[in-house]
Design a protein around this nucleic acid. Structure first.
Length: 188
DNA sequence: CCCTGATTCGC
DNA sequence: GCGAATCAGG
């Protein structure tokens, strides 16, 4: 596939919208992310994000605030997840409002407020551990393909957690998906 | 390990 | 011009 005007247009559009090279490649089809990046450079489309750190080095070497915040993620899982009747419901655990990936945003560096407090609404059988909420084009051979939300909705996502290369789902969703039907009227 | 973009260089 | 391979980072 070559770079037709249409494809270039789409590339420019998506790139300016902040999609990553791999996502754009996925949409265009027939090209890899490398191809996309290469094209972007040739077109000199670069723009958003990335503050070149060359030539004139930063006159101000940042007033050292070397405070490194380390977020400790507790993988405390309930002994057993009871998800018997929970069918693929609209489980939204997305906290951020939109694009959590700051590819578009200007340089954000490391100015984060340690929002270490997470209101822990005793979740139990409703919420999925830590879905990555990936879009279709981001899925690969080892990402959980459990659907999240309405397939007709624009923000339809997939779990995206790591899955055992054999299963199409992550551990959690595999349990829900492959429940031993205790009793089902006929196995049609 | 997953991902990101940047660069190089043979084609 | 193209993009795989590689590099450098998160």
């Amino acid at each position: 596939m070559g770079w037709t005007d249409e494809r270039v247009d789409l590339l420019i559009k998506l790139w300016s919208e902040g999609l990553s090279a791999s996502q754009i490649a996925g949409q265009l089809g027939g090209v890899t992310r490398n191809a996309v990046i290469g094209k972007v450079h040739r077109l000199k489309l670069e723009g958003r994000a990335k503050a070149h750190v060359s030539a004139q080095e930063q006159a101000q070497p940042k007033v050292a605030v070397a405070a490194e915040v380390e977020t400790v993620v507790e993988m405390e899982m309930p002994a057993r997840i009871v998800a018997m009747q929970s069918a693929p419901r609209i489980m939204r655990s997305v906290g951020g409002g939109g694009g959590s990936h700051g590819a578009t945003a200007l340089k954000m560096e490391e100015e984060m407020d340690a929002v270490a407090e997470q209101p822990r609404p005793l979740v139990s059988a409703e919420v999925v551990p830590i879905s990555r909420n990936l879009t279709l084009v981001q899925l690969n051979e080892r990402t959980c393909k459990w659907p999240l939300g309405d397939p007709l909705s624009p923000d339809f996502r997939f779990c995206g957690n790591h899955s055992n290369d054999a299963s199409p789902y992550c551990l959690y969703h595999a349990k829900i998906a492959f429940q031993p039907v205790s009793e089902r009227r006929r196995v049609r």
